[in-house]
Write a protein that binds this DNA or RNA. Structure first.
Length: 293
DNA sequence: GCGTCCAGGTCTACC
DNA sequence: GGTAGACCTGGACGC
């Protein structure tokens, strides 16, 4: 028998704005079912043998989490509810952000549509690996690398869908595996080294969520990891709730040139100057502005 | 079919 | 601190 769990969402929350906020929902173990307006994910589960697959949707003003495999205990239920709150950013307070963007006519839609919550993974580790997969390649290759990681290293749930691999599992394979099986190219030794560092406790990316460090210092710490440069670190900062970096990549730059510079290329400093008025929210402002649907 | 370019960049060496 | 060149992969494009 399937089990349904429910969560209350904040008033200024939009399920689909969050699910479609950026490309993460296209990366396994996330999957979107647009016909039935559901988001699927496979949650890791240390309290049961297998991970737990679930489908999240909106129902009667609440968030409904449907678990096909009904064999879950109260600990599992607690983990899934906690993770759903985390990935959908239900506890993020965007009131100050909305106050700022409301003033700008062209950005007022952000507050009106309750946009700005960026979908993230249950763990910073997963977001870190996925972010490295986005660097210096096409989006198609990013999806392929992440799919390979999940399909070749992830543990299966009862329905056969696989979870994102743990650091321990990722540390158990060699750099050659990442090169030959994951098709990670030059990133292969980075993954092997990072997984080992996290599995051994040398690095704990989860501490970034509640770090007291100023963003510039935290960014420096993130950049100590091989494969993480300016773009990747600033993208990760956004995913841990800090929006004072723009995370400029070639796509964002190209869209900015089109939208705000008559198609002409300009220096990054010009882009930074454009969003400077939005202060600590500038990274979220540029993302919403440029990715407006 | 083949060669080239480049995409949701980063690292290293060098100045 | 700034810059040039190398780095994997695979799809798009021109020929």
């Amino acid at each position: 028998m399937p089990i349904n769990l429910f969560l209350d969402a904040p008033k200024n929350f939009s399920f689909w704005q969050t699910v479609c906020s950026h490309g993460w929902s296209q990366l396994l173990p996330f999957e979107i079912d647009k016909e039935n307006w559901r988001l699927s994910y496979v949650f890791a589960n240390p309290y049961l043998k297998n991970p737990t697959a679930a489908q999240i949707s909106e129902a009667e003003g609440k968030l409904k989490i449907e678990i096909a495999d009904g064999k879950i205990n109260s600990k599992t239920e607690e983990i899934i509810l906690r993770d759903v709150r985390h990935i959908l950013r239900l506890d993020d307070d965007l009131r100050n952000f909305y106050k700022i963007v409301k003033v700008e006519k062209s950005l007022a839609w952000i507050a009106k549509d309750n946009a700005g919550r960026l979908l993230r993974s249950p763990t910073v580790f997963e977001d870190l690996i996925k972010t490295v997969c986005t660097t210096n390649c096409s989006w198609a290759l990013t999806k392929k690398m992440v799919a390979n990681l999940v399909e070749k290293l992830g543990e299966p749930a009862e329905n056969g869908k696989r979870a994102f691999p743990t650091a321990e599992r990722m540390a158990s394979v060699s750099a050659e595996f990442y090169k030959d099986e994951i098709r990670a190219g030059y990133r292969a030794p980075y993954f092997a080294e990072l997984a080992e560092a996290v599995a051994s406790g040398k690095i704990n990316p989860e501490t970034w969520l509640a770090s007291d460090l100023p963003s510039a210092e935290l960014k420096k710490e993130m950049k100590q990891i091989k494969g993480v440069g300016d773009y990747a670190a600033e993208n990760l900062l956004k995913l841990v709730g800090r929006y004072d970096g723009l995370a400029l990549d070639s796509w964002l730059r190209a869209q900015f040139y089109k939208k705000h510079n008559g198609g002409e290329i300009c220096a990054d400093k010009e882009i930074e100057r454009f969003y400077e008025p939005f202060g600590v929210w500038r990274g979220l402002t540029i993302w919403c502005d440029i990715s407006e649907k």
